[in-house]
Amino acid sequence: MRLKVDITGKTFRSAAGGTQEVLAPVSFALQSGEVGVLIGPSGCGKSTMLRIILGLDRDFGGHVSRPPEARIGMVFQEPRLLPWRSVEQNVRLAAPDVTDAKLAELFRILELEAHRSHFPGELSLGLARRVALARAFAVEPDLLVLDEPLASLDDALAGRLRDEIATLVASRPVMTLLVTHSLDDAIRLGDRLFLLSPRPARIVREVPIAIPRAERSESELGRIRAELAALQLESK
């Protein structure tokens, strides 16, 4: 399976009547088993790009081809849970085929066992984010889209969830697209990093990381980090 993004541009009509360019031409492709990471300044148009890729926004120039049968798991920036359904129902409604065993495992990994029958209004933001992750994983997606999934979580939990994302990505052939501000998340999870410019967003540079995720040692991570820092200075 392959996701191919070929956007030629996207403009918004502002309330004042003028037009505003949000996306410059952007194109990249993603294979099964690959994690692509979009890194860019706030407001550069990342979320717009995701909405286009997910098919929520059809008013753009260019073309996005994604296998029509691809199951999508999405973690939005806000948890977007149904407040009137319990945690377990929220997951099951999005993933009706999930087995009891799989669900139990997900809830164990994400430490949600005690909250199965709670309503989202009774959860902290951190917990709600974990439910959103459980929901995205439960559908066993072919395309996993994560929009800053680890924001506002404490470091220890963020680290554990990052490992869980890595495990999931390794366990089945899934195309993953991660949007993040955290360089650390990007180099620990990503296979290819796409550095984006400020609005209108275009890909300034594509940085492949050749070393498999599991074998990246701290020293190598440090080297990649330094490289990236140099690149970002250069592009400014």
Partner: peptide, 24 residues
């Protein structure tokens, strides 16, 4: 709208989305 989008991304069938997302 954001919940509509969620239902659409997760490919919820129309009736299920209506019953669990819209009706409540």
């Amino acid at each position: 709208r954001s919940l509509d989008e969620m239902a659409s991304v997760f490919a919820m069938p129309r009736w299920r989305a209506f019953r669990h997302v819209v009706l409540p």
